[in-house]
Simulated scan of single mutants.
Amino acid sequence: MSRRLPIIHRIVEDDSGPYRVEDLDLEFSNGERRRFQRMHGRGHGAVVVVPMLDADTVLLVREYAAGVHRYELGLVKGRIDAGEAPLQAANRELKEEAGYGAHSLVELRQLTLAPTYMSHATHLVLARDLYPERLPGDEPEPLELVPWKIDALHELILREDFSEGRSIAALFIVREWLRMHG
Rank of each mutant, 00 (worst) to 15 (best):
42 R>C: 07
124 L>V: 10
7 I>H: 13
104 S>T: 15
59 L>C: 06
10 R>T: 14
119 S>H: 07
127 A>P: 01
177 W>E: 05
108 L>A: 00
155 E>W: 13
128 R>V: 04
123 H>R: 11
159 R>I: 11
95 K>A: 10
30 N>R: 14
166 R>P: 03
95 K>F: 02
71 Y>P: 01
105 L>A: 06
145 L>A: 06
113 L>G: 15
109 R>C: 15
151 D>I: 04
24 L>Q: 06
115 P>V: 10
62 R>L: 07
84 E>F: 07
1 M>I: 12
64 Y>V: 08
146 V>R: 06
139 E>N: 09
174 V>W: 02
167 S>C: 14
76 V>S: 02
42 R>E: 13
91 N>V: 10
66 A>N: 05
65 A>N: 08
76 V>G: 00
35 R>D: 04
170 A>W: 10
129 D>L: 12
118 M>Y: 09
138 D>C: 04
63 E>W: 01
112 T>F: 05
16 S>D: 13
114 A>G: 00
107 E>G: 10
80 I>S: 03
1 M>L: 15
120 H>R: 12
98 A>W: 00
79 R>M: 07
78 G>S: 06
26 L>G: 10
72 E>K: 00
146 V>K: 02
153 L>Q: 01
104 S>N: 11
114 A>S: 13
79 R>E: 09
4 R>M: 13
32 E>W: 12
59 L>E: 02
49 V>Q: 01
12 V>Q: 15
81 D>Q: 14
149 K>M: 10
173 I>L: 15
77 K>C: 04
125 V>H: 00
123 H>K: 03
86 P>S: 07
57 T>W: 07
3 R>H: 15
51 P>H: 03
123 H>E: 04
3 R>A: 10
13 E>W: 08
138 D>V: 13
34 R>P: 00
22 E>V: 01
180 M>N: 05
150 I>A: 01
25 D>S: 12
53 L>P: 04
180 M>L: 15
165 G>N: 14
98 A>I: 08
72 E>C: 03
53 L>A: 14
167 S>Q: 07
137 G>F: 13
117 Y>S: 00
158 L>G: 12
106 V>G: 02
22 E>I: 03
24 L>D: 06
104 S>V: 15
54 D>I: 12
6 P>S: 11
93 E>I: 00
158 L>W: 12
55 A>H: 03
101 G>A: 13
97 E>H: 00
172 F>C: 06
130 L>A: 06
118 M>Q: 07
179 R>D: 12
73 L>C: 09
79 R>V: 08
117 Y>D: 03
66 A>V: 09
130 L>D: 05
6 P>H: 09
60 L>D: 01
61 V>A: 01
142 P>C: 09
169 A>M: 11
36 F>L: 14
